[in-house]
């Protein structure tokens, strides 16, 4: 655990968050990627400060905690699959709408319009 990596992780997460709050799916995807990296740094950090690779049969001495590494590996691969899927979604979005913008929900907007303008239909 050290401040440099903690701040790095926090910075990656913050950048990821900023991008995720965008309307362009490609930016959102990149944001998710950054978030994923930030979280992976956190995970690696959760095992302490690292050290020699965790191989049995070496020359003694402290080894890095192997369990967070295994967790990160799993996380990396899952993130890869998910990002690939998201990219496919962005591709499909481009196919049907011509862009990759995340539009607002149509029905939600309709309800909101009604709430602000017209009378809601009473009863039945």
């Amino acid at each position: 655990m050290n401040l440099l990596l903690v701040v790095t992780a926090a910075f990656l997460c913050a950048c990821g968050t900023y991008l995720v709050l965008s309307r362009h799916l490609s930016r959102v995807i990149i944001g998710i990627g950054l978030l994923g990296h930030g979280v992976n740094v956190l995970l690696v950090l959760s095992g302490g400060d690292g050290g020699r690779p965790a191989f049995v049969g070496g020359d003694g001495g402290p080894v890095a905690d192997p369990l967070p590494q295994a967790l990160v590996l799993t996380a990396i691969v899952i993130t890869f699959g998910v990002i690939a899927f998201l990219l496919a979604l962005a591709y499909r979005s481009w196919r049907v709408t011509g862009n990759d913008e995340v539009e607002d929900d149509v029905e939600d907007r309709r309800i909101a319009r009604e709430a602000h303008q017209g009378e809601p239909e009473a009863s039945t």
Binding site: V20, L21, S22, R23, V28, V102, D104, D105, V106, E107, D108, R109, I111, A112, E114, A115, H116, E119, P120, E121, A122, S123
Partner: peptide, 26 residues
């Protein structure tokens, strides 16, 4: 009163349910 409840419901829904992903994520 029914209309009032409906209007209130519509108002609450339009506030919380913006339909916008960035807002939800935020």
């Amino acid at each position: 009163s029914v209309r009032g409840v409906l209007r209130g419901a519509g108002w609450v829904t339009s506030v919380v349910q913006s339909g916008s992903l960035p807002v939800y994520a935020g």
